[in-house]
């Protein structure tokens, strides 16, 4: 069982590492910790309390707190989608901004798929896409239904052209966790393995 203390220590340490602050209202903060604790005990990972989980790790990994979208949302709005993490200005002014959801609709839709069905692909196709916001290099991973019959995602190797960070997942993170390079700096690694000679 994860405790509130563990959750709060983790969030505080993470905010400190990245130069962020936690939401200035203590009651709100406590409620965030409660939500994260419930989700961690329910799913096995601290899923964003403000978003719907699919319950499958690979589908949910971009919204495990701190989510993939936190850094870019803080840079743009001064706070993450939930407004758990904020920048210094927001922390001091105590005026929380509105932060729209930037997670692509295709990923949101997966949380509604029945776990035993293969309906995922058609759900993704029916939705208005958010491709305008998706950099071209990551497009292929998003525009094609990535789910397979077993509900697995198609993972690929991606590397950050700026610092060389390599990650094996469906699509690259919004911002490189090492050097903070943008999404566009990621490129897929195509490995060719020759078994002859």
């Amino acid at each position: 069982m994860t405790t509130i203390e563990q959750i709060s220590q983790r969030a505080e340490a993470d905010a400190k590492t990245y130069g962020y602050y936690l939401t200035p209202n203590p009651e709100l903060l406590q409620a965030f910790f409660e939500g994260l604790k419930t989700n961690e005990n329910r799913y096995g990972y601290p899923l964003c309390p403000c978003r719907l989980a699919s319950g499958k790790f690979e589908y949910d990994r971009d919204i495990i707190c701190p989510c993939d979208y936190r850094d870019i949302d803080i840079a743009q709005y001064g706070a993450c989608y939930c407004r758990l993490y904020v920048n210094k200005t927001v922390y001091e002014n105590k005026n929380l901004p509105d932060v729209p959801e930037r997670r692509p609709i295709e990923k949101q839709n997966r949380a509604y798929e029945p776990k035993t069905s293969t309906a995922g692909a058609s759900i993704s196709e029916n939705q208005a896409t958010t491709e305008k916001t998706i950099p071209t290099q990551a497009k292929s991973a998003v525009s094609q239904p990535a789910s397979t019959e077993s509900g697995e995602v198609k993972k690929k190797l991606w590397y950050c052209k700026q610092c060389g960070y390599v990650t094996y997942r469906e699509d690259p993170p919004y911002i490189c966790p090492i050097c903070k390079a943008k999404h566009e700096m990621f490129e897929e690694i195509n490995l060719k393995i020759s078994l002859s000679g």
Binding site: C50, L52, E101, I105, Y112, E113, P114, I123
Partner: peptide, 17 residues
């Protein structure tokens, strides 16, 4: 959940809570 998704979208709302 899928029924709720359809009902939210049919009203023109977003899947945001």
């Amino acid at each position: 959940k899928e029924k709720i998704r359809q009902s939210i979208l049919s009203k023109g709302a977003k899947l945001s809570y």
